[in-house]
Amino acid sequence: MRVMLISAVAAILVATGAAFFLGQEQRFAYQAFATTGARVTPSSNLVGPRWTGDPDVPSKSGQITPPPG
C-alpha cells in the first residue's frame, strides 16, 4: 500500500517536472511565427499586455473602445 502511494506521488512529481520543462519550451505564436525583423513587444503592439488568447485575461484592458452600435 505504501509503495502504491509513493508511486502516485512520484508520478505527480514527475508530471509537475514535465509541466515545468515543457512550459519552458512553450512558445507564443508571435515568437514562433515572426522573422528577425519583427519587433514584437507584447506590451504595446499586441492586442493585450499578455495576449494569451485566454478570454479570462482581458486584452487591451481598460483602453478598449467598444465598437459603435
Binding site: 512520484a10 508520478a11 505527480i12 512529481l13 514527475v14 508530471a15 509537475t16 517536472g17 514535465a18 509541466a19 515543457l22
Partner: peptide
C-alpha cells in the same frame, strides 16, 4: 488535457 499531457511522462518513465 493537462493530466494527459503531463502524466504521459511518468508513464513513459515507468
Amino acid at each position: 488535457k493537462y493530466a494527459h499531457n503531463f502524466l504521459a511522462w511518468p508513464f513513459t518513465l515507468g
